[in-house]
Protein backbone atom coordinates (compact mmCIF):
# COMPACT_ATOMS: atom_id res chain seq x y z
CA UNK A 1 0.00 0.00 0.00
CA UNK A 2 1.17 3.50 -0.79
CA UNK A 3 0.08 6.49 1.30
CA UNK A 4 1.13 10.00 0.36
CA UNK A 5 1.78 11.57 3.76
CA UNK A 6 1.16 15.19 2.77
CA UNK A 7 -1.08 16.55 0.06
CA UNK A 8 -2.43 20.10 0.06
CA UNK A 9 -5.89 21.01 -1.17
CA UNK A 10 -7.47 24.28 -2.24
CA UNK A 11 -6.50 27.48 -4.01
CA UNK A 12 -3.41 28.82 -2.33
CA UNK A 13 -2.55 32.39 -1.52
CA UNK A 14 0.88 31.77 -3.04
CA UNK A 15 -0.33 30.55 -6.42
CA UNK A 16 -0.59 26.80 -5.88
CA UNK A 17 -3.87 24.99 -6.38
CA UNK A 18 -5.13 21.43 -6.23
CA UNK A 19 -8.62 19.97 -6.51
CA UNK A 20 -9.82 16.59 -5.26
CA UNK A 21 -10.69 15.56 -8.83
CA UNK A 22 -7.20 16.30 -10.17
CA UNK A 23 -5.63 14.64 -7.18
CA UNK A 24 -7.64 11.42 -7.40
CA UNK A 25 -6.98 11.16 -11.12
CA UNK A 26 -3.25 11.47 -10.55
CA UNK A 27 -3.26 9.12 -7.56
CA UNK A 28 -4.98 6.48 -9.70
CA UNK A 29 -2.46 6.91 -12.49
CA UNK A 30 0.48 6.70 -10.05
CA UNK A 31 -1.12 3.88 -8.02
CA UNK A 32 -1.14 5.85 -4.78
CA UNK A 33 -3.78 4.21 -2.61
CA UNK A 34 -4.33 6.89 0.00
CA UNK A 35 -3.35 10.42 0.92
CA UNK A 36 -3.25 12.60 3.99
CA UNK A 37 -4.86 15.92 3.14
CA UNK A 38 -4.33 19.35 4.60
CA UNK A 39 -5.25 22.84 3.34
CA UNK A 40 -3.19 25.30 1.37
CA UNK A 41 -3.28 28.75 2.89
CA UNK A 42 -6.22 30.26 1.01
CA UNK A 43 -6.46 33.60 -0.72
CA UNK A 44 -9.18 34.68 1.72
CA UNK A 45 -6.87 33.92 4.69
CA UNK A 46 -9.45 31.93 6.69
CA UNK A 47 -8.37 28.40 7.53
CA UNK A 48 -11.62 27.12 9.09
CA UNK A 49 -13.50 26.78 5.79
CA UNK A 50 -10.44 25.08 4.28
CA UNK A 51 -10.44 22.54 7.11
CA UNK A 52 -14.07 21.90 6.21
CA UNK A 53 -13.07 21.41 2.56
CA UNK A 54 -10.61 18.73 3.69
CA UNK A 55 -13.26 17.13 5.92
CA UNK A 56 -15.67 17.02 2.96
CA UNK A 57 -13.09 15.28 0.80
CA UNK A 58 -12.51 12.70 3.55
CA UNK A 59 -16.24 12.19 4.06
CA UNK A 60 -16.69 11.52 0.33
CA UNK A 61 -13.74 9.13 0.05
CA UNK A 62 -12.86 7.71 3.47
CA UNK A 63 -11.25 4.79 1.65
CA UNK A 64 -8.67 7.13 0.10
CA UNK A 65 -8.27 10.11 2.40
CA UNK A 66 -7.45 11.08 5.97
CA UNK A 67 -7.56 14.75 6.96
CA UNK A 68 -5.27 16.98 8.98
CA UNK A 69 -6.42 20.48 9.96
CA UNK A 70 -4.32 23.59 9.58
CA UNK A 71 -4.29 26.29 12.22
CA UNK A 72 -2.41 29.55 12.74
CA UNK A 73 -0.92 29.78 16.25
CA UNK A 74 -1.05 33.60 16.05
CA UNK A 75 -4.83 33.20 16.44
CA UNK A 76 -4.24 32.16 20.06
CA UNK A 77 -7.25 30.55 21.73
CA UNK A 78 -9.10 30.51 18.40
CA UNK A 79 -6.41 28.23 16.94
CA UNK A 80 -6.88 25.81 19.83
CA UNK A 81 -10.65 25.90 19.39
CA UNK A 82 -10.32 25.28 15.65
CA UNK A 83 -8.04 22.29 16.27
CA UNK A 84 -10.52 20.84 18.75
CA UNK A 85 -13.46 21.45 16.39
CA UNK A 86 -11.57 19.91 13.48
CA UNK A 87 -10.79 16.72 15.37
CA UNK A 88 -14.01 16.30 17.39
CA UNK A 89 -16.60 17.62 14.94
CA UNK A 90 -15.00 17.30 11.51
CA UNK A 91 -13.21 14.00 12.11
CA UNK A 92 -9.74 15.24 11.19
CA UNK A 93 -6.83 13.34 12.72
CA UNK A 94 -3.87 15.67 13.05
CA UNK A 95 -2.72 19.27 12.89
CA UNK A 96 -0.47 20.92 10.30
CA UNK A 97 1.66 23.94 11.16
CA UNK A 98 3.39 26.00 8.49
CA UNK A 99 5.75 28.38 10.31
CA UNK A 100 6.91 29.95 7.03
CA UNK A 101 3.54 30.89 5.58
CA UNK A 102 1.97 31.74 8.96
CA UNK A 103 5.20 33.42 10.03
CA UNK A 104 6.12 32.14 13.50
CA UNK A 105 9.17 30.36 14.90
CA UNK A 106 8.10 26.76 15.53
CA UNK A 107 9.70 26.72 18.99
CA UNK A 108 8.02 29.97 20.08
CA UNK A 109 5.74 29.85 23.12
CA UNK A 110 2.73 30.81 20.97
CA UNK A 111 2.84 27.28 19.51
CA UNK A 112 2.59 25.53 22.88
CA UNK A 113 -1.20 25.77 23.41
CA UNK A 114 -1.78 24.18 20.00
CA UNK A 115 0.67 21.35 20.71
CA UNK A 116 -0.80 20.82 24.19
CA UNK A 117 -4.24 20.48 22.58
CA UNK A 118 -2.84 18.00 20.03
CA UNK A 119 -1.48 16.01 22.99
CA UNK A 120 -4.90 16.05 24.71
CA UNK A 121 -6.59 14.91 21.50
CA UNK A 122 -3.90 12.31 20.82
CA UNK A 123 -3.13 13.48 17.27
CA UNK A 124 0.23 14.02 15.56
CA UNK A 125 1.67 17.41 14.61
CA UNK A 126 2.87 17.85 11.04
CA UNK A 127 5.39 20.67 10.58
CA UNK A 128 6.67 22.39 7.46
CA UNK A 129 10.25 21.97 8.64
CA UNK A 130 13.58 23.15 7.31
CA UNK A 131 12.91 26.86 6.85
CA UNK A 132 16.06 28.40 8.29
CA UNK A 133 14.52 31.32 10.17
CA UNK A 134 11.42 29.60 11.54
CA UNK A 135 11.70 25.81 11.39
CA UNK A 136 15.38 24.97 11.37
CA UNK A 137 15.88 21.39 12.60
CA UNK A 138 17.32 22.75 15.86
CA UNK A 139 14.07 24.70 16.39
CA UNK A 140 11.91 21.67 15.58
CA UNK A 141 14.00 19.62 18.01
CA UNK A 142 13.65 22.35 20.65
CA UNK A 143 9.85 22.04 20.41
CA UNK A 144 9.78 18.25 20.17
CA UNK A 145 11.95 17.83 23.27
CA UNK A 146 9.41 19.81 25.31
CA UNK A 147 6.53 17.56 24.22
CA UNK A 148 7.89 14.01 24.32
CA UNK A 149 4.36 12.57 24.37
CA UNK A 150 3.47 14.16 21.00
CA UNK A 151 4.45 12.61 17.66
CA UNK A 152 5.90 15.13 15.20
CA UNK A 153 6.37 14.74 11.44
CA UNK A 154 8.97 17.05 9.94
CA UNK A 155 8.36 17.80 6.26
CA UNK A 156 11.15 18.30 3.67
CA UNK A 157 13.41 15.71 5.30
CA UNK A 158 13.62 18.13 8.23
CA UNK A 159 15.91 20.47 6.31
CA UNK A 160 16.00 22.65 3.21
CA UNK A 161 19.60 23.21 2.21
CA UNK A 162 21.07 22.34 -1.16
CA UNK A 163 24.66 22.42 0.18
CA UNK A 164 23.86 19.53 2.52
CA UNK A 165 25.04 21.66 5.41
CA UNK A 166 21.85 21.07 7.39
CA UNK A 167 21.92 17.28 7.11
CA UNK A 168 23.91 16.91 10.32
CA UNK A 169 21.33 19.05 12.18
CA UNK A 170 18.43 17.03 10.78
CA UNK A 171 20.24 13.89 11.93
CA UNK A 172 20.89 15.44 15.36
CA UNK A 173 17.17 16.26 15.63
CA UNK A 174 16.26 12.65 14.89
CA UNK A 175 18.86 11.30 17.30
CA UNK A 176 17.71 13.63 20.11
CA UNK A 177 13.97 13.25 19.53
CA UNK A 178 12.53 9.73 19.21
CA UNK A 179 9.11 11.40 18.78
CA UNK A 180 10.09 12.95 15.40
CA UNK A 181 9.93 11.32 11.98
CA UNK A 182 10.88 12.99 8.70
CA UNK A 183 9.19 13.07 5.33
CA UNK A 184 10.92 12.13 2.08
CA UNK A 185 9.51 15.25 0.39
CA UNK A 186 11.99 17.46 -1.44
CA UNK A 187 14.98 15.95 0.32
CA UNK A 188 18.58 16.72 -0.37
CA UNK A 189 20.06 14.08 -0.51
CA UNK A 190 18.62 10.59 -1.03
CA UNK A 191 21.47 8.78 0.70
CA UNK A 192 20.50 10.72 3.84
CA UNK A 193 17.15 8.92 3.84
CA UNK A 194 18.98 5.59 3.50
CA UNK A 195 21.31 6.56 6.34
CA UNK A 196 18.42 7.50 8.65
CA UNK A 197 16.58 4.25 7.91
CA UNK A 198 19.70 2.20 8.63
CA UNK A 199 21.17 4.10 11.55
CA UNK A 200 18.27 5.83 13.32
CA UNK A 201 15.47 3.39 12.62
CA UNK A 202 13.24 1.96 9.90
CA UNK A 203 10.23 3.77 11.37
CA UNK A 204 11.69 7.29 11.14
CA UNK A 205 11.08 8.18 7.46
CA UNK A 206 7.69 8.44 5.73
CA UNK A 207 6.80 8.98 2.09
CA UNK A 208 5.13 12.32 1.42
CA UNK A 209 5.10 14.34 -1.78
CA UNK A 210 3.98 17.72 -0.48
CA UNK A 211 2.10 18.23 -3.75
CA UNK A 212 1.43 20.83 -5.19
CA UNK A 213 4.59 22.41 -3.76
CA UNK A 214 6.47 19.43 -5.14
CA UNK A 215 5.81 17.07 -8.06
CA UNK A 216 3.95 14.00 -6.77
CA UNK A 217 5.23 11.68 -9.49
CA UNK A 218 8.84 12.75 -9.09
CA UNK A 219 8.75 12.55 -5.29
CA UNK A 220 7.82 8.85 -5.50
CA UNK A 221 11.20 8.17 -7.09
CA UNK A 222 12.96 8.93 -3.81
CA UNK A 223 11.39 5.85 -2.25
CA UNK A 224 11.26 3.73 -5.38
CA UNK A 225 14.98 4.15 -6.08
CA UNK A 226 16.16 3.97 -2.45
CA UNK A 227 18.77 1.31 -1.81
CA UNK A 228 16.66 -0.41 0.83
CA UNK A 229 14.96 -3.76 1.35
CA UNK A 230 11.31 -4.39 0.53
CA UNK A 231 10.27 -4.35 4.17
CA UNK A 232 11.95 -1.01 4.81
CA UNK A 233 10.32 0.44 1.72
CA UNK A 234 6.91 -0.77 2.87
CA UNK A 235 7.48 1.08 6.16
CA UNK A 236 8.30 4.24 4.19
CA UNK A 237 5.42 3.87 1.72
CA UNK A 238 2.71 3.39 4.34
CA UNK A 239 3.54 1.31 7.43
CA UNK A 240 4.83 4.10 9.62
CA UNK A 241 2.09 6.54 8.55
CA UNK A 242 -0.62 3.98 9.31
CA UNK A 243 0.81 3.54 12.77
CA UNK A 244 1.23 7.30 13.35
CA UNK A 245 -2.33 8.15 12.32
CA UNK A 246 -3.81 4.85 13.53
CA UNK A 247 -5.23 4.30 10.05
CA UNK A 248 -6.15 0.66 9.37
Amino acid sequence: MIIDGRVHLGEGLFGQRQTVTDLLERMDRLQIDRAILTPLRPQHYHLASENERVADAVRNRPDRFLGVCRVDPWQGADAVTELRRSVRDLGLRGVYLNPWEENFPINDEIVHPVVREAARLGVPVLINAGQVRVSHPTQVADLARQFPEVRFIAANGGNLNISGMLLSEARAMLDACPNVVIETSGTYREDFLEEVMAEVGPDRVVFASGTPYYDQEFEMERVRCAHLGEQEKMAMWSGTLRQLYQWD
Binding site: E190, F218, E221
Partner: peptide, 17 residues
Protein backbone atom coordinates in the same frame (compact mmCIF):
# COMPACT_ATOMS: atom_id res chain seq x y z
CA UNK B 1 22.89 14.81 -10.39
CA UNK B 2 25.21 16.08 -7.62
CA UNK B 3 25.79 12.38 -6.97
CA UNK B 4 26.58 10.22 -5.19
CA UNK B 5 24.54 11.97 -2.47
CA UNK B 6 21.77 12.65 -4.93
CA UNK B 7 20.97 9.54 -6.94
CA UNK B 8 21.70 9.88 -10.70
CA UNK B 9 18.78 7.53 -11.46
CA UNK B 10 16.36 9.90 -9.74
CA UNK B 11 17.99 12.95 -11.29
CA UNK B 12 17.69 11.49 -14.81
CA UNK B 13 14.04 10.75 -14.09
CA UNK B 14 13.52 14.39 -13.10
CA UNK B 15 14.65 15.56 -16.54
CA UNK B 16 12.44 12.97 -18.24
CA UNK B 17 9.45 14.27 -16.25
Amino acid sequence: SDGPGCDPTIEVRKVRL
